[in-house]
Simulated scan of single mutants.
Amino acid sequence: MISETALLESATLRSTVLEHTDVLDRVKALSLLPDGMHVTTAMVAAYFGVTTEAIRQLKARHREELSRNGMLTLQGPELAQFKRDILSRYPGGYPQPRSSLTLYSRRSVLNIAMLLRDSDVARQVRVYLLDMEYQARTQPVDNPPAAASAALDARIDERITHILGRTVVPMFNALIEASSDHRQELIALRTGVQRIEKRLRQHHARLQRLESPREDRPLVGVMASMDAMNGREFEEHVATLLRRDGCTNVIVRGGNRDRGIDITALTADGRTLAVQCKRFAPHLSITSPEVQKFVGAKVLHSSEVALFVATCPFTRDARNIAAEGGITAVHRGLLEEWSAGAPLTVLQ
Rank of each mutant, 00 (worst) to 15 (best):
S10Q: 02
Q124W: 14
L33F: 01
K198A: 08
M71F: 04
Y134C: 15
A268F: 07
A323Y: 08
L334N: 03
T311Y: 00
P289C: 07
L189K: 12
H237S: 00
K83E: 08
P144A: 05
G254R: 06
G325F: 08
L347T: 01
R271I: 02
E158D: 12
V238M: 02
D22V: 15
L103S: 04
S88H: 11
P282D: 07
R232G: 08
T161R: 11
Y47T: 08
T51A: 12
E337H: 00
R244C: 00
L200T: 08
E9L: 09
T40C: 00
T240R: 06
D35F: 04
R259V: 12
L189R: 14
V17H: 10
I187K: 13
K28S: 14
L32Y: 06
Q202S: 09
A281S: 15
P34D: 03
T167I: 09
E215K: 09
E211D: 15
A318P: 09
R98S: 10
E304K: 06
V27C: 14
E53F: 09
A136W: 12
E185D: 09
G326S: 02
E324V: 15
R259S: 14
L115N: 03
V168S: 13
A150L: 12
L74F: 00
A42V: 01
G231W: 03
R316T: 02
L116S: 05
V44D: 07
R117P: 05
S105F: 03
N111Y: 13
F308P: 00
P218M: 11
L79I: 10
T267Y: 01
Q96G: 09
A54K: 04
A318G: 11
L58S: 03
G255Y: 02
E78C: 12
R244Q: 00
R84V: 14
G260Q: 08
T5R: 12
L116E: 01
L130F: 07
A154W: 15
T287F: 10
S31Q: 11
N230Y: 00
V125P: 06
R89E: 15
S288L: 14
H301Y: 13
T102F: 05
V299I: 13
P213D: 11
T41H: 04
Q124K: 14
A60F: 04
A151H: 11
D269P: 07
G92V: 10
G270K: 00
G333V: 11
R214P: 06
Q57S: 13
H62N: 10
R26V: 13
A46H: 09
Y47L: 05
P145D: 02
L273M: 05
S212F: 08
H237Y: 00
D216C: 05
G93W: 04
E9K: 11
T240Q: 02
N111C: 13
G270E: 01
D131S: 15
P289E: 06
K298P: 07
E337T: 00
L347S: 01
R332L: 12
I112Q: 06
F234Y: 01
D118G: 08
I156G: 05
A178Q: 02
I86H: 08
I263T: 03
S149A: 12
R63Y: 10
A310Q: 01
L130P: 07
L284D: 14
T287R: 10
E133C: 15
D153R: 15
